[in-house]
Design a binder for these strands. Structure first.
Length: 560
RNA sequence: GACCUCGUAGCUCAGCUGGAUAGAGCACUGGUUUCCUAAACCAGGUGUCGUGGGUUCAAGUCUCACCGGGGUCACCA
């Protein structure tokens, strides 16, 4: 049942305003005491030459509906209070009927490639990669729920000058045995050392560029090292993706597009877009903007060149309706350039490309920089989180079966949830204590709520209950839960439109909070006539909590 | 200097398309377990919504300017 439409239908008979405008005006009061829907009468004041307060007073008594418990004038508003029993019964019925499909939408269809995660080869994954990974993963699930077909692309940073530098570093300080023993960390150390040394000996930079040029020209030694570094790195990444339970539809990284750049450059030339500037080939971006660099002065390619080739290739292969780049906010200008160049090339589908930016993670207020060796290793964070979760279980529920698995789900869940619960663009300063907190506004809080609900349902199996089809509940707490449940479909819509997982996370927290209040105030397992209705509420809450957590990529253990 | 982004309680942040006394969590104090998992619940209180104009019946929300934090400013990605 759509209560808002019901409000509109009622008002229509007594108010001289078009339906579309009514729909716009009707709002949900922030304060629940004011009712569930409100109609502000200000707009009618001029039309009727009366005070809004008087208008509200006149309209309210004329409106009668079984759906609303009462309709009253409060100041210049007409407030509608939903009949609790109707909303509760209606919502529970829907959730239990649709199960996990509750909230599904058909907002669109077609492929949506999501460029996400994209770690750089030979560097450990950091907290920064976590953001892109979990936001992208969640968006994929949300977009699938509203009808689209997401394609998760891990655009590996497996090419570029940095590999020339890495090879140069390996040649100076590396050896095969060390790399075999601990690939990522040792390669990483070479890389950091390179940047430290390069500050004293700038000629190293040239050496790095030279190796990259060799790599791009197919030099055997360069290719051998690159291939090896890439393989061992990818192996390591996949281990972490397994921990996070994230998978990809494609690992086509930058190198994959290496042989696809020439045609883009030719095309840019043919379309008269390419100009020479300071020895490099660029596309002019207008008076106030930097030109878009396509070919560097030493003749090698650059990020943008590869991204252009990648975008074209993806359009040809996926025929996408939208494409998302889940990449840090600091790269905003790059995507402005990418879109602009594609547009100049005559590709209108450039408009369907969206940069989904996110805020920076800092430590002690400073930017984390891989180059400077100032990083927070994701591996370590996940490890610590799981350890702490296990500690917690030993303390609170030592007899729990499958502790290790639950600790993993809770620990990793805490980290993921922490990353998703706030607006994407908020920066945050990394603080392990904060990330792995288990109380308050956290993932484990939501998980715990669900585990409680599950526990109730398990115990309920022992009671013989008459099945009911009409879920009549009249207490205030169950109504608050039901109201949140009823909001879920709109939450999905908003999250998918704004590419914002935090909307789902916030919803899950609110629902969990309402459910815990219900749980604390109402004894559920009492064998009376309302028992089936109460169990329906518990079941529906658990279903929706599970679904919300799933959309965030967070596990929902049945016990914890 | 230009552009992007953020600026709400001691701290971390909500506040959907402008609307009625601006809300959570953390931290702090106290309380709740013969009863469904106390990772919970209940009670305690603080705000020049960065500043100043503008639009509007109505601005934390829209607009402009300024201030402050972060980011970026072609041959890294």
């Amino acid at each position: 049942m759509n209560f808002k439409e019901e409000v509109i239908a009622l008002l229509q008979a007594h108010v001289d305003l078009p339906v579309a405008q009514l729909r716009d005006l009707i709002e949900r009061p922030k304060n629940a005491k004011m009712g569930d829907y409100a109609f502000p009468t200000f707009v009618l004041a001029k039309q009727l030459h009366k005070s809004p307060v008087l208008i509200a007073k006149e309209i309210a008594p004329k409106l009668v509906s079984p759906v609303f418990a009462n309709i009253t004038a409060v100041g210049p508003y007409v407030n509608f209070a939903i009949n609790h029993a109707v909303l509760t019964a209606d919502t529970l019925k829907q959730v239990l009927q649709l199960q996990a499909h509750y909230g599904d939408q058909t907002l669109g269809h077609g492929n949506i490639p999501i460029d996400m995660s994209s770690p750089n080869i030979a560097k450990p994954m950091s907290m920064g990669h976590l953001r892109s990974t979990v936001i992208g993963n969640s968006l994929a699930k949300v977009l699938a729920k509203v009808g689209y077909h997401p394609i998760k692309i891990n655009y590996l940073g497996d090419y570029g000058t940095q590999f020339g530098k890495l090879i140069a570093a390996y040649k100076h300080w590396g050896n095969e045995a060390d790399v075999k023993q601990d690939p990522i960390m040792n390669l990483f150390h070479y890389y950091v050392k390179f940047h430290q040394e390069a500050e004293k000996h700038p000629e190293l930079e040239d050496e790095g560029r030279l190796w990259f040029k060799k790599l791009e020209q197919g030099d055997a030694e360069a290719t051998r090292l690159w291939t090896w570094f890439r393989a061992v790195s990818l192996e390591d990444f996949k281990r972490i993706y397994y921990e996070l339970d994230v998978d990809f539809d494609s690992y086509n990284g930058e190198a994959f597009f290496n042989d696809k750049m020439a045609s883009v450059i030719t095309e840019l030339k043919d379309k008269g877009l390419l100009h020479e500037s300071q020895g490099a080939q660029v596309v002019d971006m207008g008076p106030d903007q930097n030109p878009a660099l396509i070919v560097k002065s030493d003749g090698t390619s650059i990020y943008l060149t590869r991204d252009l080739a990648a975008a074209k290739w993806r359009m040809q292969h996926y025929d996408f309706v939208k494409m998302l780049y889940v990449v840090g906010n600091e790269q905003g200008e790059h995507f402005v350039q990418l879109k602009a160049v594609l547009k100049k090339m005559g590709y209108d589908w450039s408009d369907n490309i969206h940069h989904v930016p996110f805020g920076l993670i800092t430590q002690g207020g400073k930017k984390l920089s891989t180059r400077k060796g100032n990083v927070v290793f994701l591996d370590q964070v996940l490890h610590d989180a799981v350890d702490l979760a296990l500690n917690q279980i030993e303390h609170k529920n030592p007899d729990l079966a499958g502790k290790a698995q639950v600790a993993h789900d809770v620990g990793v869940g805490a980290v993921i949830f922490h990353d998703l619960k706030n607006d994407r663009l908020d920066n945050f300063d990394f603080d392990l204590k904060e990330v792995v907190r288990f109380e308050g506004d956290t993932g484990p809080y939501v998980q715990y709520t669900n585990a409680r609900a599950q526990s109730v349902l398990r115990k309920a199996e022992q009671l013989t209950t008459a099945s009911a089809t009409d879920y009549q509940l009249t207490d205030e707490w169950s109504f608050q839960v039901a109201k949140d449940l009823a909001d879920f479909p709109q939450v999905i819509v908003r999250a998918s439109e704004k590419f914002e997982p935090s909307i789902v996370a916030k919803f899950a927290l609110n629902l969990a909070k309402k459910f815990n209040k219900y749980y604390a105030n109402v004894k559920i397992l009492t064998d009376d006539t309302e028992l089936p209705a109460r169990l329906a509420l518990v079941k529906a809450s658990s279903l929706v909590l599970n679904e919300a957590l799933r959309l965030l990529g967070v596990k929902a253990p049945k016990e914890m």
